[in-house]
């Protein structure tokens, strides 16, 4: 099963990734070859096999629900490309008209 140009466009939209036409063409071929290679798993009988999650049986450790000191607001905002004194800024996404 090969990957169509529309498939790549759909994935790019889902992944919030804008692609040039040249990238689209190249990725279509490369992803097609990789997915074709992955097709070999279809030959494995997994009828009675339960999906694995982490490779081994993990006992997740809990911890007491206690408040610890975290980052300050200034620290959290320190690496942001755009912010005010207490919040991250993004382009407008609510249409006020």
């Amino acid at each position: 099963m090969s990957i169509s140009r529309q498939d790549v466009q759909r994935m790019a939209r889902l992944a919030r990734l804008s692609l040039t036409d040249a990238e689209l063409a190249q990725l279509q071929g490369q992803l097609g070859a990789i997915v074709e290679y992955m097709e070999q798993l279809r030959t494995v009988d997994t009828e009675d096999v339960a999906p694995d999650v982490a490779g081994l049986e993990l006992t997740l450790a809990g911890r007491p629900d206690e408040v610890h000191a975290g980052l300050t607001t200034a620290q959290a905002l320190g690496g942001a490309p755009d912010c005010t004194a207490d919040s991250f800024c993004v382009p407008a996404f609510v249409d006020e008209s």
């Binding site: 997994t46 999906p51 694995d52």
Partner: peptide
């Protein structure tokens, strides 16, 4: 499918 094969590998 890959999660199931992962179990077989394990």
């Amino acid at each position: 499918k890959a999660r199931r094969v992962r179990r077989l590998i394990r």
